[in-house]
Structures are given as structure tokens and as C-alpha cells.
Amino acid sequence: MNYTFTLRTVFPYLGGLVAAAEMTLTLSVLAILISLVIGAAVAVMRRSRLRVVRFAGAAYVEVMRNTPLLVTLYIVYFAAPAIGIRLSSFTAALLGLSLNAAGYMAEIIRAGLIAVPGGQFEAATAQGMTMGQMFRHIIFPQVFRTIYAPLGNQFIAVILASSLASAVAVEEVTSWMETVGANSFRFFETFVVAAVVYVVLCQTINLARLQIGRMLFRQPEARR
């Protein structure tokens, strides 16, 4: 074993790493936001009075959760040109990631909605609240509380999943590792550096989540 671990060998590539880390973060944040919107819509669909709509919502969730993200990415990436839309690598990756994450997000939001007892809707209605008032003052604060922790997990899951964007030629952290490793033959170093970037991103989110959670939900939980 004549391989010596020398981090210095990857120093020349660190400029590219910053851009790559920014790409990973941008992709993940946007995907979370988009999947939040789609997921909320799907979660509401699953509570519809119409059976067809409920089924469509459930089908979306099951399809997304039971097909590999990589396949979703390829389908978006290759299908768009076939129907005459030109998508950049970034847009295709963002779309695929968002569509896939929305399947998980819908379940998180659905669980949050289920956790609000029916009596809450009734009490708010009986007090004369409109749908908008009820959502803003009664439903949203309670749902947000329930989904807050899983939302953080989902954020981390999306960051890790965004590594697959390298497969459709997005230049994020994983593709940085692959290219720099191939160019310099220093795969161990690039692996360690990339791993550290991911760990730092994930753990930062984790800690921020705990800290913000403590600030937001200071009220005591316990029954006296």
C-alpha cells in the first residue's frame, strides 16, 4: 500500500468545490420549496370528497415513493426533449428531484393534517371564521408544529438525493468529486472532502432545526 493521503493535492480544485456546494444547496432549497407546494396540493387532494381525486393523490404518492429517483430523473431529462421542451440539466434535475420529494412531502403534510382533531375545524367554524382565517390562525400553526421535525429530515434527505443530479450532468458536489478524482487520481482525498461537505451541510441543518425549534415552540408540552 503505497498510497499516501495528501489533502494538498486537491487544493487547486477547491474553487470549483465552492461553486459545486452552492449548486447542491441551491438545488436542494428550491426542490424543498417546490415539493412543499406540490406535496401540499397532493395532501389536500387525498382529503377530497371525490374518490377519483383521492385516488389520484394516493397514486402519485405511491408511484413516487416506489420508483428510484434516478429513473425519475432520466425520464424527466429524456422525456422533455421528446415532447419538444428543452430543459437544461439543472432544470431537469430540479424538476425530477421536486416531483420525487413531493411524494414524501405529501405524506408528511397529510400526517400533519390528520393530527388536527376534527373539533378544531368545528370550533373555528362555529366562531364564524372563514376558510382563510381558519387556515391561518388554527390549522397552519398546528400542522406546522407537527411537520416541523419531519420537514428537517426531508431537507437532509433532499440534500443527499441531490447527489444524483450528477447523473444528468449537473455540476454539484458529487460530480465535483467524480471529475476531480478522475483528473487527479486522488479519489480518497476528494471522497473525504465531498463527504465532509455533505456532513457539514446536513449537520448544520440539523442544529439549525433544533435551535429554531426551541425558539418557535417554547410553550410547555406537559399536563400539569
Binding site: 443527499l160 478524482g181 479519489f187 480518497f188 463527504a195 455533505y198 456532513v199
Partner: peptide, 19 residues
Amino acid sequence: SVPILIVLFFAYFGVPVML
């Protein structure tokens, strides 16, 4: 907290070079 894809790359490309 680490994507499996970089582990995969390391195992496939990195290990032969190292070992």
C-alpha cells in the same frame, strides 16, 4: 449524512487506486 453515490464512486474508483 453522506450520499451513497459518493461511497459508490469511492469504492469503484478510489479503492483500486489506493489498494
